[in-house]
Amino acid sequence: MVVQALAFYLFASIAVIAATLVVTVRNPVHSVLWLILTFFNAAGLFVLLGAEFLAMLLVVVYVGAVAVLFLFVVMMLDINFTEMREGFLNYLPIGILVAVALFVELAFVGATWALTDEKVAALGKPTPDGINNIEALGNLIYTDYVYVFQASGLVLLVAMIGAIVLTLRHREGVRRQNISEQVRRTRADTLEVKKVPVGRGI
């Protein structure tokens, strides 16, 4: 138990620190790197909760795909983040107001919430007895909710088709890579030798 508690505090504190750094560091690339650290620690927390499949998923999906995508966007779009932060002080009062309101609400929720024995019992078992993580999730996604799962898949497919239909266009005059065409290029296609008469220029 002590090891578990230690691990929890380690993961939790690093996650909090890294998350704070995500929003405070100046360099956006560093920010994304801190975000990746946050994801890793969150994955660690999932492992402690007994949800190892979700932990792997978090690493694969968020670190492997989403964070890398962010990195691409940050590096390719060349956004000046320091400029975007300029208005920070102007918005500070209203930001603090929102934060206070949220904290008060959280406090209310916390005050009315009680850790009953029932809830403790439920917490002890992340999955039903005798079934591991993946099986439990699989039962939900591929048996109980297979219909909505497949329907969500179709919705995503439509979103993808839509994005392609509405954005893909082949502009005239854009040089695209076409390997076979490029390899087939001969000297005769590209070079022209001109005889320049002496003393007259081209």
């Binding site: 909505v148 919705v155 979103a159 239909v165 509405l166």
Partner: peptide, 23 residues
Amino acid sequence: MLSLYLGLELQSLALYVVAAIRR
């Protein structure tokens, strides 16, 4: 409610794209 919403979204999303197909 869940299957209702997903059906509705599947329909709506496709219709948004179809409406703007002559972009």
